[in-house]
Amino acid sequence: MTESIVAPVIQVKDAGIRFKRNRRSRRSFKDLFAGRGRRARPDEFWALRDVSFDVQPGEAIGVVGRNGQGKSTLLKLVAEVVYPDEGSVGVHEGVAPLIEITGGFVDDLSVRDNVYLTAGLHGMKRAEIDARFDEIIEFSEIGDFLDTPYKHLSSGMKVRIAFAVISRLEEPIILVDEVLAVGDKAFREKCYRRIEELLAGGRTLFFVSHSEKDLRRFCTRGLYLDKGALVMDAPIADVLDRYNAEYGVTK
């Protein structure tokens, strides 16, 4: 009997993305005094380069690396917030991204209106949002602020409502960046239990964190990024062991 082949939900092939930054050329004190200060000049750098991997349905991927090594950029590529300058990124299922707490929310709209707007932007119909509205608000624990402008919420409250909305989407792929670190410990644990429920239901997870405990809790596979390159793709325990051996900074 021939076994059926399961197609990857994410395919990244030789992907690279570059950004521009400004460097300032050195000037003498005389130049500064004469008003000829250091001039900005554009300089390109590769945030990611030659990155390749596939992700199967239901995998839980932990993305490991120091700050500034391309982890969040990789998540944005998968979320199709940015696009590669070389290579390709194929995402074959819908994505529920929790990457930036302000993403998709409008400062001057109320919390209530933002729930409908953000869920709608992710493809939920009005009737679906109506049906899930109470459970979204109950999960967020900010029911007293439904008619408060979003801009007046604290960072922790923004995380609460963002996670409550995104975690109720039916998208098969979940992207989670470091944003949950902003929330209080009790609510963070509540979010983590919800992630476990989603994983048990067959969702695919991309998880960026500096917490070794959290990475081991959720993830079975690790991608180790260093200087924009994928230097290791292996079981999460092996990836963390190498990262700890090289830098000793994962907590």
Rank of each mutant, 00 (worst) to 15 (best):
R39P: 08
L146R: 11
I5N: 14
G103N: 15
G228H: 12
V78C: 00
L109C: 03
G201S: 11
V91A: 06
L98P: 05
R36H: 14
F139Y: 07
E80F: 01
G70R: 06
I129Q: 04
P57M: 07
G202I: 04
S88H: 09
E135G: 02
G68A: 02
K158Q: 10
G228Y: 12
G248Y: 01
L240T: 05
A162V: 03
G156C: 00
F206M: 13
D238C: 03
F145N: 08
I17Q: 06
G68I: 00
E171R: 15
K151N: 13
S88I: 00
Y192N: 09
G120N: 06
E212C: 03
A131H: 08
H122E: 05
I173P: 03
L225D: 11
L199K: 12
K76R: 14
F45A: 00
G120T: 03
H92R: 15
R26P: 14
S154Q: 10
R126G: 00
V63N: 07
D177I: 00
V89W: 04
G202P: 07
M124T: 05
R26D: 14
R188A: 05
R41I: 08
D107M: 10
L32R: 15
K71I: 00
D238L: 10
V249D: 08
G37P: 11
N67F: 06
V51L: 09
D130I: 01
G90P: 05
E135S: 09
L225V: 06
V239M: 11
